[in-house]
Computed example of a mutant assay.
Amino acid sequence: MFYFFVLLTVVAAFDIEIHNKYETLERSEFVEYFNSLNLTYKIGVESLSSDHKHCTFMNHDINLPTITHDVSFMALPESFDAREKWSNCPSIRKIYFQNICGSCWMFGTASTATDRNCIHANNYKDLSEQDLSCCTDCYENLCSGGNPTKAFEFWINYGLVSYDCQPYNYYPLMKHRYCSQTCVNGVNYYQDKNYGGRVYKVPSDEHQIKAELVTNGPIEATFVIYDDIMDYTHGVYVHKYGENRGYHSVRIIGYGEEEGVKYWLIANSWGRTRGLNGIYKIKQFQPEIQMEDWLLAPMPKGF
Rank of each mutant, 00 (worst) to 15 (best):
M1P: 11
Y3Q: 14
V10P: 04
V10L: 12
D15S: 12
I16Q: 10
E17Q: 13
E17C: 10
I18K: 03
I18L: 09
H19S: 12
E23V: 13
E23H: 11
T24P: 02
R27L: 02
S36D: 11
S36A: 14
L37Y: 05
L37N: 03
T40V: 05
Y41M: 04
Y41V: 05
K42F: 08
I43W: 02
G44W: 04
S50P: 07
D51Q: 11
K53N: 13
H54F: 11
N59E: 05
P65I: 09
T66Y: 01
H69T: 01
V71W: 00
E78I: 03
S79Y: 10
A82N: 02
A82P: 01
A82V: 04
A82R: 01
E84L: 13
S91D: 10
I92D: 00
R93P: 04
K94V: 15
I95S: 03
Q98P: 06
I100F: 12
G102H: 03
M106A: 15
F107L: 02
T109I: 04
A110S: 13
T112H: 01
T114D: 01
I119A: 03
H120V: 12
N123M: 08
K125M: 12
L127R: 01
E129S: 10
D131A: 15
L132Y: 06
T136K: 11
L142C: 10
G145S: 04
G146S: 05
W155A: 08
W155P: 03
V161N: 01
S162F: 07
S162T: 15
S162D: 07
Y163E: 13
C165Y: 07
C165V: 09
Q166F: 09
Y168W: 14
N169S: 12
Y171K: 14
P172K: 03
Y178Q: 06
Y178C: 06
Y178K: 05
C179G: 06
C179F: 06
T182H: 09
V184I: 15
N188W: 07
Y189V: 06
D192S: 15
N194F: 15
Y195W: 05
G196A: 00
G196V: 00
R198Q: 14
P203R: 06
D205M: 03
D205R: 00
Q208W: 00
I209Q: 05
I209R: 03
T215E: 12
I225Y: 01
I225W: 00
D227N: 14
D228N: 03
I229K: 00
Y232F: 11
Y232E: 06
Y237T: 04
V238W: 02
G242L: 10
G242W: 11
E243S: 13
Y247A: 08
V250G: 08
R251K: 15
G254H: 01
Y255M: 05
E257V: 11
E257H: 02
W264Q: 04
L265S: 07
L265N: 07
I266W: 01
A267M: 02
R274Q: 13
G278T: 04
Q286M: 14
Q290R: 14
L295F: 05
L296N: 03
A297P: 03
P298C: 08
M299D: 10
F303I: 13
